[in-house]
Design a binder for these strands. Structure first.
Length: 166
DNA sequence: GCCAACGTTGGC
DNA sequence: GCCAACGTTGGC
């Protein structure tokens, strides 16, 4: 029995890694390393599978916004940056024998014509239950419902059309 | 196991 | 820069 495709949202600060960085990366692919939160880790380790779709979100940006999409090309595997003690994400409790932290690979899929700002997403009733919009939400790796994902894509396409008409 | 102190995230 | 909302740590 084949598993259904799942949908995710990944947060990143564009100053450290942006959608443009992803688009410019070799094979437009990067490993999504450095996640150091257990709930997020569990998603990466257990639930990310190749073919899953990702919304790419810029946090601490002006404005904070969903800026594009990516696809998962490799499911969870140990995050080796955790046991490189020169690395910013070093965690002495994690070893190659007993990895604590996991990463995935994602590939660039699209960059929206216009960012979908957090503020504008809050005005969309169909997205009211989205984890991203929940008060106090801080998860950097979060599940997205299929209908939410589709609505976000439609919104992105809509801003594109309006821009084209100008 | 409780919980206060502390550190981090991230919108504003 | 502020601070609310978390998650983690560690004393007890």
């Amino acid at each position: 029995m084949s598993r259904e495709v799942r949908y995710w949202l990944l947060k990143t600060e564009p100053e450290s890694f942006s959608i443009d960085d992803l688009a410019a990366a070799p094979r437009k692919t990067t490993c999504w390393d450095g996640v150091r939160n257990y709930q997020a880790r569990n998603s990466l380790r257990d639930d990310f599978k190749p073919g899953d779709h990702v919304l790419f979100y810029h946090s601490s940006a002006k404005p904070p916004a969903i800026v594009g999409t990516a696809t998962v090309t490799r499911g969870g595997y140990p995050d080796n940056t955790a046991w490189q003690n020169v690395n910013h994400h070093f965690d002495p409790k994690s070893t190659a024998e007993n990895p604590i932290w996991y990463m995935v690979d994602i590939k660039f899929e699209s960059k929206f014509a216009e960012p979908l700002a957090l503020e504008s997403l809050r005005k969309v009733p169909a997205l009211a239950k989205m984890e991203l919009l929940r008060k106090g939400s801080r998860l950097s790796v979060q599940p997205v419902r299929e209908d939410e994902f589709e609505i976000v894509l439609q919104l992105a396409a809509g801003t594109k059309r309006r821009t084209a008409k100008k």
